[in-house]
Nucleic acid binder design. Structure first.
Length: 796
RNA sequence: GCGGACAUGGUGGAAUUGGCAGACACGCUGGUCUUAGGAGCCAGUGCGCAAGCAUCCGGGUUCGAAUCCCGGUGUCCGCACCA
C-alpha cells in the first residue's frame, strides 16, 4: 500500500485551492456573512515564529468550518509592516526598509500557504503601502479637524535605545515594551491623540462587546475610572490656591498637610516666598534624574522636603497646614497635588510617620496608631465637625454639597487613562501630514495631497537629539504652506506602529478602494468583525487603540457601529518544552518549517490544537507530534468496506466536533475524531468515511482533500457541506445507570432510555450487589436522576 | 496593595457545568511480527495485596462536590506611591 506522504500531497492541494479561489470572500453572495479575524503579523526577518500558528490554525479551522456550513466567510490577512525592527534591520544591513518588508512578506506568504491556511489572497493589505497609509493619514487629519489630535509640550517617556518617545501603554514596569531599556523622562513637544475624551465610552461600551472576562477587566483597570472631588486649598497670605483631587473628600477634616509633586508649577510661582529654595531645588533635581522605574519600583521609602515659608489652609478646619514636595505624588495623575490624610491613607500615614506629622482620626473603626484605616464600608465620622456621626457614604455626599456651596470644590470623575503620545522620531512610519508655517502656524496637508509619501533617503538612522531622521532631508522638509504659499517646513515625526493596525479590519472590507478607506456598502456588508482572536498582550494597546479609532470613525459617520468587534477570544501562549518562554538560545521551542518538512502541515496543525485548551497556556512537546502523525497515518490506512460504524457513534462525533469548534475546544474535537477512527478501523462504510473526511477537513485539510478525491467524491472536500447530525440519533435506546448506595458507586444497571423512575429504581434494587448490601432492608430514600443514576439510601 | 486566572495520574490534558473522575494522547509494562528496531499490531496501565483510598490543604452545603460556599497554601498574568 502507498505510504502517507504529506510532501507529495500538500503542495498540490494548496495550488488547487488557490487556483480555484476557494477562500475568496464573495461581495455579491447572498449567503450570511461571517468575518473571522486574526491579528495581522509584523513580517519580521526570521519568518513565522511559534506565536503565529496557534491563533492562525484555530481561526482557520473556524473559518473553514463556517464555509462548509454555508457562510460567506471573510478571513483575511495583511502585513503590519511599519516599525522599528524592519528599520533596524535595514540600517544594519544597509537595505531600504521597503525592500526588507517586500522580502519578508514574500517569505511569510510562502510559509502561510504551506500551512494550508485559508486566507483570502485577494484582500491582503500592507500598512506600508502608500495606497493604504493614505487613509491612515486621512484619519489623522480628521482627528486634527475634530480637535482629537493636538501638539503639546508634555513630559514623555523616552527610550534611549529605540531613540524615540513611547506611549504610556508601551512602558511596562518602567521599561520599554520593545527593548526593555529603562524609559527616561523628556519634555518634548508631541503629537497626542485625545483618547481620554473617549474614556467613559470605552468603558461603558465594554458591555456591548463579547470579551473574555480577563480582557474586559484589564481594559477597565487600565481606563481606571474613579469618582471623587476636586478641592481648593488657599495658600495662606497669597492669592494662590492649590487644587487637589481626592476620592475621599469625606476625610477633609483629617487633612493635616499637603504634598505636591516635584514638577508642580506652584513652586515656580511662589519661589520668592520659599525660604529653603536651595534644598527644594536639590530635591526636585534629584527626582528629575530618576527614571519612572526608579521612582516606582525601587524607592518605596517616603522622601520629601517641606516648603518653608508657605502654608495652606484646610477649608474645613481653617487650620494652617504645611506643604511638602515629594515624589510619591505624580504630576501625571490628578492635579499633581494631594491633601494628605495620614489617618486614612497608607502612603500619607507612612509619610507622616517619617516626618513626624500629626495623624488625626476622622473615621472611627481602626487603630490609626498602628496603621491607616482605609475602610470605607464600616467607618463612622469623628473629629469632623458637621460630619460627625455619619457613615462614610453619607459624609461624602454632605461634604460635596458643602464644598460646592462655598465654591471650594466640586465632584469630579478621573481616569488613569492618559492621552496617547502619537509621534515617533523614526523614519519607518507614516509621515504626519502637517506643515509648520511661520505665518499660519500648524497647517494640515490638504486631503488631495495624500498620501504624503516617505522620501527615498540614504540615511534613516535615528538621532539622539530627539529629532526624526526626516528632519535631515532638506528637499522633503522644506515645502510651501498650503494656506499662504510661503516657505514652511513639514512635520518630521512619524506615526507609531499602532496607527496602521488601528483600522486595518475596515480596509479588508474593500481593500482596493482608491476613493474612500472603504465603501459604505462594503462596510455594511462586513462590519463589525464577528470573531476576533488575538493575544492578551494587545489588550491595553492595539485592542484599546482600535476601539478608540473605530469610535471616532463612527462619530464622523464612516463606521456604522459603535464597536468594531462582536466577539473577542484570546489564545493561550505556547511555552517551551521546559515550561519557560520559547527562545532560540534555549532550544526549547519549535520551528514551524522544520516540523512541516519532517511531518507535514496537517500534522503540525493537529498538534498545535491537540496540545491543550486553545484559550489556556500550554507547553510545547515534541511528543505530541507523534500521536498526531500516527493518527493521520491510521486515517490514511482505513479502507471502507461493507460494514458501517454504529450510527449513534457517528452522529455523536458530528455533534461533538461541530460544537467544539464553536467553543474553540479543538483538543477535544480531535480526541472525538480519534475515538471515531478507532471504531472505523474495525469496519466502516464509504459513507462513514465521507462524513469523517468532512469533519477532519478544517483541521487537516490536505489529507482530507486527497482521500476525498481518491474515494471518488465529487468536488473539493473543503467546499463540501458540513455534516449534519440528527439529535435523536446521538443517543442509544438503552442507558447504563450508575447505581449508588448512600452516595457511593456500587455498580451499574442497563435500562431503557427515558424509563420511569420506579422502573429504574427497581432495576437498581435488583442488582446482586445492592441485594447483598441491603440484606432485605428497604431503602429509606431513593433518588433517581433520569438516564443518569439511582442513589439508594439505607439506614444504619 | 488592587484586579484577573488557575491547582486533576509518571506527562500533556478530559469530565455533558452538581450525577460512574482520569476521555484522547504521550510515556511505561508485557506479548507478537522481525536479521534488527526508537516501526507496526495486540493487551495492560490513578494508588492499594485487600476492604478501600483518590481531583492543593482544612471546614461547610447536598442523597451526591474536581465542580457551589467559607478559610488557608501555592502558581501564573495584568496594573501599581493613581490620591
Amino acid at each position: 500500500m502507498e505510504r502517507y506522504d504529506p510532501k507529495a500531497i500538500e503542495p498540490k492541494w494548496q495550488k488547487t485551492w488557490l487556483e480555484n479561489g476557494c477562500f475568496r470572500a464573495g461581495d455579491e453572495s447572498g449567503k450570511e456573512r461571517f468575518y473571522a479575524l486574526i491579528e495581522f503579523p509584523y513580517p519580521s526577518g526570521v519568518g513565522l515564529h511559534i506565536g503565529h500558528p496557534r491563533p492562525y490554525t484555530g481561526m482557520d479551522v473556524l473559518a473553514r468550518a463556517r464555509r462548509m456550513q454555508g457562510y460567506n466567510v471573510l478571513f483575511p490577512i495583511g502585513w503590519d509592516a511599519f516599525g522599528l525592527p524592519a528599520e533596524n534591520y535595514a540600517i544594519k544591513n544597509n537595505i531600504h526598509p521597503a525592500e526588507v518588508v517586500r522580502h519578508n512578506v514574500e517569505h511569510f506568504r510562502g510559509q502561510i500557504r504551506r500551512l494550508g491556511y485559508s486566507f483570502d489572497d485577494a484582500r491582503e493589505v500592507n500598512t506600508t503601502d502608500p495606497d493604504y497609509y493614505k487613509w491612515t493619514q486621512w484619519i489623522f487629519l480628521k482627528m486634527v479637524e475634530h480637535g482629537l489630535a493636538y501638539k503639546a509640550d508634555v513630559p514623555v517617556n523616552w527610550c534611549p535605545s529605540c531613540k524615540c518617545v513611547l506611549a504610556n501603554e508601551e512602558v511596562v514596569g518602567g521599561l520599554c515594551e520593545r527593548c526593555e531599556a529603562p524609559a527616561e523622562h523628556r519634555d518634548k513637544s508631541q503629537w497626542m491623540l485625545k483618547i481620554t475624551q473617549y474614556a467613559q465610552r470605552l468603558l461603558d461600551d465594554l458591555d456591548l462587546c463579547e470579551f473574555p472576562a480577563r480582557v474586559a477587566a484589564q481594559q477597565r483597570n487600565w481606563i481606571g475610572r474613579s469618582e471623587g472631588a476636586e478641592i481648593l486649598f488657599a495658600i495662606a497670605g497669597t492669592d494662590e490656591s492649590l487644587r487637589v483631587y481626592t476620592t475621599r473628600p469625606d476625610t477633609l477634616f483629617g487633612a493635616t498637610y499637603m504634598v505636591i509633586s516635584p514638577e508642580h508649577p506652584l513652586i515656580g510661582r511662589l519661589e520668592s516666598r520659599i525660604q529653603n529654595l536651595a534644598e527644594v531645588d536639590g530635591y526636585r533635581k534629584a527626582a528629575a534624574r530618576k527614571s519612572d522605574f526608579e521612582r516606582t519600583e525601587l524607592v518605596k521609602d517616603k522622601t520629601g522636603v517641606r516648603l518653608d515659608g508657605i502654608t495652606a489652609v484646610n477649608p474645613a478646619t481653617g487650620n494652617d497646614i504645611p506643604i511638602y514636595v515629594s515624589d510619591y505624588v505624580l504630576m501625571s495623575y490628578g492635579t499633581g497635588a494631594i491633601m494628605a490624610v495620614p489617618g486614612h491613607d497608607t502612603r500619607d500615614w507612612e509619610f507622616a510617620r517619617a516626618f513626624g506629622l500629626p495623624i488625626v482620626e476622622v473615621v472611627a473603626g481602626g487603630d490609626i496608631s498602628k496603621e491607616a484605616f482605609t475602610d470605607t464600608e464600616t467607618g463612622t465620622m469623628v473629629n469632623s465637625g458637621f460630619l460627625n456621626g455619619m457613615e462614610v457614604a453619607e459624609a461624602k455626599k454632605t461634604i460635596a454639597k458643602w464644598l460646592q456651596g462655598k465654591g471650594l470644590g466640586e465632584p469630579k470623575v478621573r481616569y488613569k487613562l492618559r492621552d496617547w503620545v502619537f509621534a515617533r522620531q523614526r523614519y519607518w512610519g507614516e509621515p504626519i501630514p502637517i506643515i509648520h508655517c511661520p505665518q499660519c502656524g500648524m497647517v494640515p496637508l490638504p486631503e488631495d495631497q495624500l498620501p504624503l509619501k516617505l522620501p527615498e533617503v540614504q540615511n534613516y538612522k535615528p538621532t539622539d537629539t530627539g529629532e526624526s531622521p526626516l528632519a535631515a532631508i532638506g528637499e522633503w522638509v522644506n515645502t510651501t504652506c498650503p494656506q499662504c504659499g510661503g516657505a514652511a517646513r513639514r512635520e518630521t515625526d512619524t506615526m507609531p506602529q499602532w496607527a496602521g493596525s488601528s483600522w486595518y479590519f475596515l480596509r479588508y472590507a474593500d481593500p482596493h478602494n482608491q476613493n474612500e478607506l472603504a465603501s459604505k456598502e462594503a462596510l455594511r456588508r462586513w462590519m463589525p468583525v464577528d470573531w476576533y482572536n488575538g493575544g492578551m498582550e494587545h489588550t491595553t494597546l492595539h485592542l484599546l487603540y482600535s476601539r478608540f479609532w473605530h469610535k471616532f470613525l463612527y462619530d464622523i459617520g464612516v463606521a456604522e457601529q459603535p464597536e468594531p468587534y462582536i466577539k473577542r477570544t484570546s489564545h493561550g501562549f505556547i511555552l517551551g518544552s521546559d515550561g519557560t518562554k520559547i527562545s532560540k538560545s534555549k532550544n526549547n521551542g519549535m520551528d514551524p518549517d522544520v516540523i512541516m518538512r519532517e511531518y507535514g502541515a496537517d500534522t503540525l496543525r493537529l498538534t498545535i490544537l491537540f496540545i491543550g485548551d486553545f484559550e489556556k497556556g500550554c507547553q510545547w512537546s515534541e511528543k505530541a507530534i507523534k500521536g498526531c502523525r500516527r493518527f493521520l497515518e491510521r486515517v490514511w490506512a482505513v479502507k471502507p468496506g461493507a460494514s458501517a460504524v454504529d450510527e449513534v457513534k457517528l452522529h455523536q462525533t458530528v455533534k461533538k466536533v461541530t460544537e467544539d469548534i464553536e467553543g474553540l475546544k479543538f483538543n477535544t474535537a480531535i480526541a472525538a475524531m480519534m475515538s471515531l477512527l478507532s471504531v472505523m478501523e474495525k469496519g466502516c462504510s464509504q459513507f462513514d468515511m465521507n462524513v469523517f473526511l468532512r469533519l477532519l477537513s478544517p483541521f487537516a485539510p490536505h489529507i482530507s482533500e486527497e482521500m476525498w478525491a481518491r474515494q471518488g467524491e465529487k468536488g473539493l472536500c473543503c467546499e463540501a457541506a458540513w455534516p449534519q447530525y440528527d439529535p435523536a440519533k446521538t443517543v442509544e435506546d438503552t442507558v447504563e445507570l450508575a447505581v449508588q448506595v448512600n452516595g457511593k458507586l456500587r455498580g451499574t444497571v442497563t435500562v431503557a432510555r427515558g424509563c420511569e423512575n420506579d422502573t429504574a429504581a427497581a432495576a437498581a434494587l435488583g442488582t446482586e450487589r445492592v441485594k447483598a448490601i441491603a440484606e432485605g432492608r428497604e431503602p429509606v430514600k431513593v433518588i433517581v436522576v433520569p438516564d443518569k443514576l439511582v442513589n439508594l439510601i439505607f439506614k444504619g
